[in-house]
Protein backbone atom coordinates (compact mmCIF):
# COMPACT_ATOMS: atom_id res chain seq x y z
CA UNK A 1 0.00 0.00 0.00
CA UNK A 2 1.37 3.42 -0.79
CA UNK A 3 0.87 6.63 1.14
CA UNK A 4 -0.88 9.70 -0.29
CA UNK A 5 2.55 11.30 -0.59
CA UNK A 6 3.90 8.39 -2.63
CA UNK A 7 0.85 8.54 -4.87
CA UNK A 8 1.36 12.26 -5.41
CA UNK A 9 4.95 11.72 -6.52
CA UNK A 10 3.90 8.79 -8.69
CA UNK A 11 1.40 10.91 -10.63
CA UNK A 12 3.40 14.15 -10.93
CA UNK A 13 7.00 13.03 -11.05
CA UNK A 14 7.15 12.50 -14.82
CA UNK A 15 5.66 15.96 -15.45
CA UNK A 16 6.98 18.34 -12.85
CA UNK A 17 8.36 18.78 -9.35
CA UNK A 18 6.01 19.33 -6.40
CA UNK A 19 5.98 22.22 -3.95
CA UNK A 20 6.02 21.40 -0.24
CA UNK A 21 5.15 24.11 2.30
CA UNK A 22 6.26 24.03 5.94
CA UNK A 23 4.60 25.53 9.00
CA UNK A 24 5.00 24.71 12.69
CA UNK A 25 1.78 23.51 14.35
CA UNK A 26 0.19 26.24 16.42
CA UNK A 27 1.89 29.13 14.63
CA UNK A 28 0.91 31.89 15.06
CA UNK A 29 -2.10 30.26 16.77
CA UNK A 30 -3.81 26.95 16.16
CA UNK A 31 -6.79 28.49 14.33
CA UNK A 32 -4.62 30.89 12.33
CA UNK A 33 -2.34 28.06 11.24
CA UNK A 34 -5.31 26.41 9.52
CA UNK A 35 -5.93 29.56 7.49
CA UNK A 36 -2.26 29.69 6.53
CA UNK A 37 -2.26 26.05 5.45
CA UNK A 38 -5.39 26.70 3.39
CA UNK A 39 -3.74 29.75 1.79
CA UNK A 40 -0.66 27.72 0.88
CA UNK A 41 -2.81 25.07 -0.77
CA UNK A 42 -5.00 27.65 -2.53
CA UNK A 43 -1.81 29.21 -3.88
CA UNK A 44 -0.57 25.92 -5.34
CA UNK A 45 1.35 24.08 -2.60
CA UNK A 46 1.09 20.33 -3.32
CA UNK A 47 1.96 18.91 0.09
CA UNK A 48 2.22 20.20 3.66
CA UNK A 49 4.96 19.66 6.22
CA UNK A 50 3.78 20.30 9.80
CA UNK A 51 6.56 21.13 12.25
CA UNK A 52 6.39 19.74 15.79
CA UNK A 53 7.60 22.77 17.78
CA UNK A 54 10.57 21.79 19.94
CA UNK A 55 12.49 23.60 22.67
CA UNK A 56 15.93 22.85 21.19
CA UNK A 57 15.75 22.99 17.38
CA UNK A 58 19.43 22.78 16.41
CA UNK A 59 18.73 22.50 12.66
CA UNK A 60 16.65 25.67 12.55
CA UNK A 61 17.67 29.26 11.98
CA UNK A 62 16.18 32.33 13.74
CA UNK A 63 12.93 32.55 11.72
CA UNK A 64 11.70 29.04 12.49
CA UNK A 65 13.07 29.19 16.05
CA UNK A 66 10.94 32.26 16.74
CA UNK A 67 7.86 30.60 15.21
CA UNK A 68 8.42 27.44 17.28
CA UNK A 69 8.86 29.49 20.46
CA UNK A 70 5.59 31.26 19.74
CA UNK A 71 3.80 27.95 19.19
CA UNK A 72 5.25 26.51 22.40
CA UNK A 73 4.12 29.59 24.30
CA UNK A 74 0.65 28.80 22.96
CA UNK A 75 0.92 25.40 24.65
CA UNK A 76 1.21 23.31 21.50
CA UNK A 77 1.93 19.62 22.09
CA UNK A 78 1.43 16.29 20.35
CA UNK A 79 -2.37 16.60 20.44
CA UNK A 80 -2.34 19.92 18.55
CA UNK A 81 0.28 18.65 16.12
CA UNK A 82 -1.88 15.67 15.18
CA UNK A 83 -5.02 17.84 14.94
CA UNK A 84 -3.20 20.16 12.54
CA UNK A 85 -2.00 17.16 10.60
CA UNK A 86 -5.58 15.93 10.28
CA UNK A 87 -6.68 19.32 8.92
CA UNK A 88 -3.90 19.44 6.32
CA UNK A 89 -4.04 15.76 5.36
CA UNK A 90 -7.74 16.06 4.52
CA UNK A 91 -6.69 18.55 1.83
CA UNK A 92 -3.31 17.37 0.48
CA UNK A 93 -0.66 14.74 1.32
CA UNK A 94 0.95 15.82 4.60
CA UNK A 95 3.89 14.88 6.79
CA UNK A 96 5.25 15.87 10.19
CA UNK A 97 8.75 17.25 10.70
CA UNK A 98 10.00 16.57 14.21
CA UNK A 99 13.16 16.31 16.23
CA UNK A 100 13.49 12.87 17.76
CA UNK A 101 12.83 13.46 21.46
CA UNK A 102 9.12 14.29 21.13
CA UNK A 103 8.64 10.96 19.28
CA UNK A 104 10.54 9.03 21.91
CA UNK A 105 8.55 10.74 24.65
CA UNK A 106 5.23 10.03 22.92
CA UNK A 107 6.17 6.40 22.34
CA UNK A 108 7.83 5.39 19.08
CA UNK A 109 5.25 2.88 17.86
CA UNK A 110 2.40 5.00 19.13
CA UNK A 111 3.64 8.04 17.20
CA UNK A 112 3.64 6.15 13.90
CA UNK A 113 0.22 4.74 14.74
CA UNK A 114 -1.29 8.16 15.54
CA UNK A 115 0.32 9.64 12.46
CA UNK A 116 -1.41 7.05 10.28
CA UNK A 117 -4.68 7.47 12.20
CA UNK A 118 -4.63 11.22 11.47
CA UNK A 119 -4.08 10.72 7.75
CA UNK A 120 -0.37 11.57 7.77
CA UNK A 121 1.89 10.13 5.09
CA UNK A 122 5.20 10.23 6.90
CA UNK A 123 7.68 11.91 9.22
CA UNK A 124 10.84 13.90 8.52
CA UNK A 125 13.34 13.28 11.35
CA UNK A 126 16.28 15.72 11.02
CA UNK A 127 18.26 14.48 14.02
CA UNK A 128 17.53 10.75 13.92
CA UNK A 129 20.57 8.95 12.57
CA UNK A 130 20.20 5.67 10.73
CA UNK A 131 22.21 3.95 13.48
CA UNK A 132 19.56 4.85 16.09
CA UNK A 133 16.59 3.97 13.88
CA UNK A 134 15.84 0.32 14.63
CA UNK A 135 12.67 0.94 16.59
CA UNK A 136 11.53 3.68 14.21
CA UNK A 137 11.98 1.50 11.14
CA UNK A 138 9.88 -1.22 12.75
CA UNK A 139 7.17 1.26 13.76
CA UNK A 140 6.92 3.00 10.38
CA UNK A 141 6.86 -0.35 8.58
CA UNK A 142 4.19 -1.63 10.91
CA UNK A 143 1.91 1.39 10.40
CA UNK A 144 2.82 1.88 6.74
CA UNK A 145 3.97 5.47 6.94
CA UNK A 146 7.01 7.00 5.26
CA UNK A 147 10.24 7.67 7.13
CA UNK A 148 12.01 10.58 5.54
CA UNK A 149 15.69 11.06 6.32
CA UNK A 150 17.79 14.10 5.56
CA UNK A 151 21.05 13.71 3.65
CA UNK A 152 23.77 16.34 3.37
CA UNK A 153 26.55 17.30 1.01
CA UNK A 154 28.99 15.85 3.53
CA UNK A 155 27.28 12.43 3.49
CA UNK A 156 29.86 9.96 2.21
CA UNK A 157 28.95 7.61 -0.70
CA UNK A 158 28.63 4.40 1.30
CA UNK A 159 26.53 6.13 3.91
CA UNK A 160 24.39 7.81 1.26
CA UNK A 161 23.49 4.38 -0.07
CA UNK A 162 22.72 3.10 3.41
CA UNK A 163 20.53 6.06 4.46
CA UNK A 164 18.61 6.33 1.19
CA UNK A 165 17.92 2.60 1.18
CA UNK A 166 15.99 3.08 4.44
CA UNK A 167 14.10 6.17 3.21
CA UNK A 168 10.71 6.18 1.55
CA UNK A 169 8.20 8.85 0.49
CA UNK A 170 11.01 11.16 -0.47
CA UNK A 171 14.64 11.80 0.38
CA UNK A 172 15.23 15.21 1.94
CA UNK A 173 18.36 16.67 0.35
CA UNK A 174 19.75 19.53 2.46
CA UNK A 175 20.82 22.11 -0.10
CA UNK A 176 23.63 23.46 2.03
CA UNK A 177 25.69 22.84 5.13
CA UNK A 178 23.73 24.90 7.61
CA UNK A 179 20.41 25.57 9.27
CA UNK A 180 17.01 26.58 7.90
CA UNK A 181 16.55 30.17 6.75
CA UNK A 182 16.59 32.51 3.80
CA UNK A 183 19.53 32.58 1.41
CA UNK A 184 20.25 34.82 -1.55
CA UNK A 185 20.98 31.85 -3.79
CA UNK A 186 20.62 28.08 -3.77
CA UNK A 187 23.94 26.46 -2.96
CA UNK A 188 25.65 25.06 -6.03
CA UNK A 189 26.28 21.79 -4.22
CA UNK A 190 22.55 20.99 -4.11
CA UNK A 191 22.41 19.94 -7.77
CA UNK A 192 25.45 17.73 -7.34
CA UNK A 193 23.99 16.12 -4.20
CA UNK A 194 20.76 15.30 -6.03
CA UNK A 195 22.78 13.70 -8.82
CA UNK A 196 24.69 11.61 -6.27
CA UNK A 197 21.40 10.44 -4.72
CA UNK A 198 19.89 9.63 -8.13
CA UNK A 199 22.82 7.32 -8.79
CA UNK A 200 21.95 5.15 -5.78
CA UNK A 201 18.18 5.51 -5.28
CA UNK A 202 14.88 5.50 -7.14
CA UNK A 203 13.07 7.32 -4.34
CA UNK A 204 11.89 10.88 -5.17
CA UNK A 205 14.18 13.67 -3.93
CA UNK A 206 13.04 16.97 -2.44
CA UNK A 207 15.46 19.81 -1.80
CA UNK A 208 15.13 22.03 1.26
CA UNK A 209 17.05 24.71 3.21
CA UNK A 210 17.29 28.24 1.86
CA UNK A 211 14.72 28.13 -0.96
CA UNK A 212 12.59 31.25 -0.63
CA UNK A 213 11.58 32.71 -4.02
CA UNK A 214 10.18 31.70 -7.42
CA UNK A 215 13.53 31.92 -9.17
CA UNK A 216 15.19 29.57 -6.67
CA UNK A 217 12.16 27.25 -6.73
CA UNK A 218 12.34 27.05 -10.53
CA UNK A 219 16.06 26.35 -10.42
CA UNK A 220 15.63 23.47 -7.94
CA UNK A 221 12.56 22.12 -9.79
CA UNK A 222 14.84 21.73 -12.80
CA UNK A 223 16.68 18.83 -11.15
CA UNK A 224 14.73 17.69 -8.05
CA UNK A 225 11.31 16.05 -7.60
CA UNK A 226 10.24 18.37 -4.81
CA UNK A 227 10.99 21.85 -3.50
CA UNK A 228 10.56 22.54 0.23
CA UNK A 229 9.89 26.09 1.46
CA UNK A 230 9.53 26.98 5.14
CA UNK A 231 11.19 30.12 6.49
CA UNK A 232 9.89 32.31 3.63
CA UNK A 233 6.26 31.45 4.47
CA UNK A 234 6.85 32.07 8.15
CA UNK A 235 8.55 35.37 7.50
CA UNK A 236 5.55 36.44 5.41
CA UNK A 237 3.32 35.85 8.44
CA UNK A 238 5.76 37.45 10.89
CA UNK A 239 6.14 40.62 8.81
CA UNK A 240 2.42 41.15 8.19
CA UNK A 241 0.53 43.75 10.20
CA UNK A 242 -2.49 41.51 10.66
CA UNK A 243 -3.45 37.88 10.21
CA UNK A 244 -5.52 38.73 7.12
CA UNK A 245 -2.53 40.44 5.60
CA UNK A 246 -0.31 37.48 6.50
CA UNK A 247 -2.70 34.96 4.98
CA UNK A 248 -2.85 37.03 1.78
CA UNK A 249 0.95 37.26 1.65
CA UNK A 250 1.29 33.50 2.13
CA UNK A 251 -1.12 32.89 -0.75
CA UNK A 252 0.78 35.29 -3.04
CA UNK A 253 4.09 33.67 -2.14
CA UNK A 254 2.65 30.19 -2.74
CA UNK A 255 1.34 31.26 -6.17
CA UNK A 256 4.70 32.70 -7.09
CA UNK A 257 6.63 29.63 -5.87
CA UNK A 258 4.16 27.27 -7.57
CA UNK A 259 4.56 29.14 -10.85
CA UNK A 260 8.32 28.82 -10.49
CA UNK A 261 8.10 25.08 -9.82
CA UNK A 262 5.63 24.50 -12.68
CA UNK A 263 7.78 26.45 -15.16
CA UNK A 264 10.11 23.45 -15.29
CA UNK A 265 8.39 20.81 -17.42
CA UNK A 266 9.90 17.38 -17.87
Amino acid sequence: MSTALEELFATTRSERAILIGYIPAGFPTQEASYRIIQAMIDGGVDAIEIGFPYSDPVMDGPIIQAAADQALANGVGAKEVFETLRFAADLVPSVIMTYWNPIERFGVDNFAKELAAHGGSGVITPDLTIEESKEWIAATDSHQVNRIYVVAQSTQPERLQNVTSQTNGFIYAASLMGVTGLRTSVASGAHELVARIRAVSEVPIAVGLGVSNAEQAAEVAGYADGVIVGSAFIRAVQEANSLDEGVAAVRLLAESLAAGVRSQKR
Binding site: D127, T129, E131, E132, V150, A152, S154, V163, A174
Partner: peptide, 9 residues
Protein backbone atom coordinates in the same frame (compact mmCIF):
# COMPACT_ATOMS: atom_id res chain seq x y z
CA UNK B 1 24.72 7.23 20.61
CA UNK B 2 24.26 9.99 18.05
CA UNK B 3 21.14 12.07 17.47
CA UNK B 4 22.39 14.81 15.18
CA UNK B 5 21.78 16.34 11.76
CA UNK B 6 23.32 14.26 9.00
CA UNK B 7 25.62 17.18 8.14
CA UNK B 8 27.60 16.51 11.34
CA UNK B 9 28.18 12.80 10.85
Amino acid sequence: GRFVPEALI
